[in-house]
Amino acid sequence: MGYVSKRIAGALFVVFGAVTLIFIVLYWLPGDPAQLIAGDDASPALVARLRAQLGSDQPLWTQYIHYIQGLATGDLGRSFATGESVFSRLAAQAPATLELAAFSLLVTVVLGVILGMVSAVHRNDWIDTTIQSVMLALASMPSFWLGILFILIFSVWLRWLPAIGNGSVAQLMLPVATMGLASAGRLAPMVRNNLVEVLDEPFVATLRAKGLLERPVLYQHVLRSALIPTVTLLGVIVGELLGGLVVIETLFARQGLGRIIAEAIGNKDIPMVQGAVLFFAVVYVTINLFVDLSYRWIDPRIAL
């Protein structure tokens, strides 16, 4: 229990650090948000008024304290660029991003683990070689290019799936396949190599010598040991998935936080960037928290 609360405290600290860091970076970026909102040739008086309204005329630490106070009361503030509530803007875009990320992760895990296992069991025969080569190809392709390829095959040529938009399951298929396959291409070889390593360990020979069938050996003992490094890699892959959102959302013309954050940085829309970073930080940290906690479930020998 002590371990869990320590991990949660650590996670909160990481979120806090991320928010603080991005605050400072944005603050030092050149460009005056009030001038941007007011437009090119606004009178200095108007710009000054806006600055006071936004609070952007306050010193760094005052702005920072205001921001943290707002966060504590669940208020993410209002967009500099549009005056809208940051929370409602993000809330409107988050579902599209979350479903994309979640299903991509699911595809990554299912495909990565299954193909990795098949590969390990058949190690060094043609099945292994085929899977390994395909995975290598998927992992090396830019997701952008893979996405265009899928659009051409499944949307233009076969006409099975829509290429753009979000909301329906059909619209989710191509972007999820693009992101999921690319990540599975990184995960599967990892799973395979871990399994192969474990399969060579003496305890496996012992199990077999005791007359255990190959199946229980593989599923109950080997897989469990091999999962630890795999799960660790998953934490990294989640980060990459989130980072790749901008490209995928643009390519498939989807709504989403990736595009919002890119645009908000361009506009120096500090509250919006803050809100989006906070969201991503929470997602990332939560996933990694689960990764940490899952170690014990996977391998009870690990003391938490």
Binding site: I148, V156, R159, P162, A163, I164, G165, L251, F252, A253
Partner: peptide, 19 residues
């Protein structure tokens, strides 16, 4: 109107009949 910023996708949705 659907915003499709990527030009290759724009051509693809026209060819596929999605637009």
């Amino acid at each position: 109107f659907k915003n499709v910023p990527e030009e290759a996708t724009r051509v693809a949705v026209l060819q596929s009949g999605q637009a």
